[in-house]
């Protein structure tokens, strides 16, 4: 059993005991598979207009199982494509925030002192900025651009990650086993690699899991306001927006994308919660 195996198998055991998290993980997995492979089995593409079936309700007979929108496009395929975008943005922006956050937080936390003081003051100031509005401003000024969305969202979320990683790095630095490693002649690289990072990964994993739904939410929010991805490409937020505008005449246009979005966020949050209970000793129930 390797050390990391120890960490993940402990977490795995705790997760399996948490039924909500297990079910969430299973649903998420099937959702991801559906989003990736589902469109391959559909006769329609996401921007194909079926002129005979404008805004038709869900039906098995015509093959449009989720119905079509005002432009006669198949909602099933569009929902899956929207899911691709939402999930991709979620993962990519989380990766961005992880990268910046870990580097920044670990630097501040490990070196400490005046450097830490200055770096954390900067984070404090950035924290107080109304980022959602700045992102909207950015979108207005520079137009819709999926790359910009990644950067903007990553730029918001790295702050949390940096704070968490810094706190962890700081407390690890003072832990006796790290001090013992120094007296054992271990160099800084070895200390960070063998002693600090392995003990930090659990917490990072938890917060990464909780960051993905936040990011998806932000992207959907922007798309809902008409500031996200551009037509004919779509995302769950954009679909919900279209659905909301047509909910009286075509409620299915709202219900399908809305449930996909809600279920995904629900499962991700449950999984993150479960993972936190399993890995983060601070929140462990019981003793």
């Amino acid at each position: 059993m390797t050390p990391m195996g120890g960490l993940w198998s402990d977490a795995g055991r705790a997760l399996r005991r948490n039924r909500a998290a297990t079910i969430s993980a299973a649903i998420l997995l099937s959702l991801i598979l559906l989003v990736i492979f589902g469109p391959l089995f559909s006769p329609w593409s996401y921007d194909y207009t079926d002129w005979g079936e404008i805004a038709s309700p869900p039906a098995l007979s015509n093959g449009h199982v989720f119905g079509t929108d005002q432009l006669g496009r198949d909602l099933f395929v569009r929902t899956l494509y929207g899911g691709r975008i939402s999930l991709m943005v979620g993962l990519a922006a989380t990766a961005v925030s992880l990268l910046i956050g870990i580097a920044y937080g670990a630097t501040a936390g490990y070196f400490g002192g005046r450097l830490d003081h200055v770096m954390m003051r900067i984070v404090d100031i950035l924290y107080a900025l109304p980022f959602m509005f700045l992102v909207i401003l950015l979108m207005v000024l520079f137009g819709r651009n999926i790359f910009l969305i990644f950067v903007a969202i990553g730029a918001i979320n790295w702050l949390d990650m940096a704070r968490i990683v810094r706190g962890q790095a700081m407390s690890l630095r003072e832990r006796e086993f790290v001090v013992a490693a120094r007296t054992s002649g271990t160099r800084a690289g070895g200390i960070i690699g063998r002693h600090v990072v392995p003990n930090l990964l659990g917490v990072v994993a938890v917060y990464a899991t909780l960051t993905v739904p936040q990011v998806i939410l932000v992207e959907s929010f922007l798309s809902f306001l008409g500031l996200g991805v551009a037509e004919p490409m779509t995302s769950w937020g954009a679909l919900v927006n279209e659905g909301a505008q047509n909910m009286e005449s075509a409620p299915w246009m709202l219900l399908f994308p809305a449930s996909f979005l809600a279920i995904t966020l629900f499962c991700l949050n449950f999984l993150g919660d479960g993972l936190r209970d399993a890995l983060d000793p601070r929140d462990r129930s019981g003793r």
Binding site: L7, E176, F177, A180
Partner: peptide
Amino acid sequence: QVVFQDPLAALNPRMSIGDIVGEPLRNF
């Protein structure tokens, strides 16, 4: 060398006893 107060806190929870005791040798 040094021996610390809190026996458990002085040992990296993610390393085996063999790795912990062997670490100084690996370095020295």
